[in-house]
Design a protein around this nucleic acid. Structure first.
Lengths: 117, 117
DNA sequence: ATTAGCAGGCACAAAAATGTGCGTGCTTGC
DNA sequence: GCAAGCACGCACATTTTTGTGCCTGCTAAT
C-alpha cells in the first residue's frame, strides 16, 4: 500500500512478489493476521493487548490497510461503549498455510538464537 | 535486521512473526529468494536483470543481509573479470513452501486487478 | 466521585528503507 | 582503440514507516 513510484511501474510482470510484499509486508501486518487466525474474532483492545509493543496508531493503520485490501473484516456494532470486531476474510485465509511455515521457521530460529547465550 | 528499539525488547515471547518479518520483510528480499529458488544459482548481474527495477545498492544490501542471516550462500571465484555466485542455504529452502503460497496468492490478486480495467 | 475501559484520532518526531548518480580496475570482443 | 560487462562501493537525498504523547465522549464499576 505504498504509493507507486515510477520505477515500480516498470515492474509489472515479474514482480508478483513485490506486489505481495506491498500488501503483507510491514512490521505488524503478519502478526495481526496471525492473531486473528488463532482467535477467529477479536476486538480492538484485545488485539492490542495480545500484540505486545504495538501502539494505537500502528494497530489502527495496519487494520485499515488490511481492510482496504480485503484481508480483514471490520464489523462495528452501534452501541455504547463501542464494540468493533475484526476477523479474516476468505481471501486472507488462503494465506494461512504460508504463515504456518513462516511461524515455524521463525520459531526455530529464535530458539536457536537463545541457546547462543 | 533493523536496529532494536526499546519497545521491541518488551516483545520477546509472542512476536515470532515480528522477528521473521525483520528478516524476510522488505521490498526485495522475497523476490530475490524466489529468483534464486527458481534458478538454483545466479550471478550478480543475472539477478539484477531478472529483478526489473532493482538498483545496485538495493541488490547488494539485500544480498548482504540475507547472507548475514544465513539465507543466502555467496561464493566468490577469484578471477578476472570477477565471478560471484549466489544460491539459497538449506535453512532458506525451508521457507520455499511459504513463498509458493504467497506467490500464488499474489498472482491471483494481480490478475483480478487487471480485469478491473 | 473517580476511575477504567471502549475504539480509536491528531500533530509531530524519529528512524528506517529505498533510490540517484557516479566511479572502481580489469578483460574480452569489435 | 573503444566500448561493454563483471561485481559492486560511496555520499547523499528522498520517501516510507513507525513511534510519542495526548485527547475524545460515553458507560459501568469501585
Amino acid at each position: 500500500m505504498t504509493k507507486k513510484r515510477e520505477s515500480d511501474l516498470i515492474n509489472k510482470n515479474n514482480c508478483v512478489m513485490v506486489h505481495a510484499m506491498d500488501i503483507i509486508g510491514g512490521k505488524w501486518r503478519l502478526p495481526i493476521i496471525w492473531k486473528l487466525y488463532k482467535n477467529k474474532t477479536m476486538r480492538y483492545n484485545e488485539l492490542k493487548r495480545s500484540l505486545s509493543g504495538i501502539t494505537n496508531i500502528m494497530l489502527t493503520r495496519s487494520l485499515r490497510n488490511l481492510e482496504e485490501n480485503g484481508l480483514v473484516h471490520r464489523v462495528e456494532f452501534s452501541q455504547n461503549p463501542p464494540k468493533v470486531e475484526y476477523s479474516l476474510t476468505d481471501n486472507c485465509i488462503k494465506l494461512v498455510p504460508a504463515l504456518e511455515v513462516i511461524y515455524g521457521w521463525g520459531h526455530e530460529r529464535l530458539s536457536k538464537k537463545d541457546k547462543d547465550f
